[in-house]
Design a protein around this nucleic acid. Sequence first.
DNA 1: TCAAGAATACGTCAATCACG
DNA 2: CGTGATTGACGTATTCTTGA
Length: 310
Amino acid sequence: MSKCGRKKYIKTNLRQMETLDCQQDGGVPGSVAESESAHLQAQTGPNSAPTLAQVVAVAEADDSAESEGVTDSQKRREILSRRPSYRKILNELSSDVPGVPKIEEEKSEEEGVPPHVAAMAVPTSIYQTSTGQYIAIAQGGAIQISTPGSDGVQGLQALTMTNSGAPPPGATIVQYAAQSADGTQQFFVPGSQVVVQDEETELAPSHMAAATGDMPTYQIRAPATALPQGVVMAASPGSLHSPQQLAEEATRKRELRLMKNREAAKECRRRKKEYVKCLESRVAVLEVQNKKLIEELETLKDICSPKTDV
DNA sequence: TCAAGAATACGTCAATCACG
DNA sequence: CGTGATTGACGTATTCTTGA
């Protein structure tokens, strides 16, 4: 991206933030969710779900805070303490209010992984490649690669590593690179090996289960060339000696942490969206209820105190 | 049609929570 | 208490909308 474009983006997003601040005064439901929750946290403590009354109170508090000009991000950070997770809040809501859907535990894995992968024998790890394919590592070292959108038979490939034993429990590490230098796709699997996507199907070696038909095939082989940028091979902790190896280990850990956090952030956003949707639908229901009650009240008023203009 | 702005999504960092 | 999970904040990228 050019510097010029960058400037534009910064300007655009600064404006976006200003707009958000303005919208908080206006009370647009979706856009105020974050500031609401932040204030709710301060008001209700870390473990209680917000109520509508609290939301109203918060909206009022927003006005006063805004008028005092408390916008400094550092101060805001101090004020903002953590709220319970969206899953927790929504589940609490669902127990209070029938009809509110629960956020399932580990729902994302079930949603995100195609059925033909989920159907395999209890994979220990499932990863998605940059091209949308899924690679699953089963207990015992079996690797399964599948293509979403295809049916269970076509999109499924099971690779069993023949030249390595079962990985120690919890030690499965798979990293993938978008593309290697020769244009093929590579997955890095335990045992300092690489799963390489063949461009030509007939080149599939005999030591692996070759895919059938026109499906892509994969080879397990030792990485002959230097690893792509950002990918560091796993090494057992006991084998680390030189500072360079320690640095590589640190880099690998960092990459792993970033990858995990990336996924966690995606999942968090998904839950947040679900949570906001839930709140919005709840508001709609309560508004209808409120309207009905007001109408009922008016009716009762008419009945109980008929006009006595004598 | 095009540029500007708005909306949305993503990746990362850091703080905090929750659990063993 | 250590560690993984969660989430707010922030910067950036991409897509959509709108007005000239």
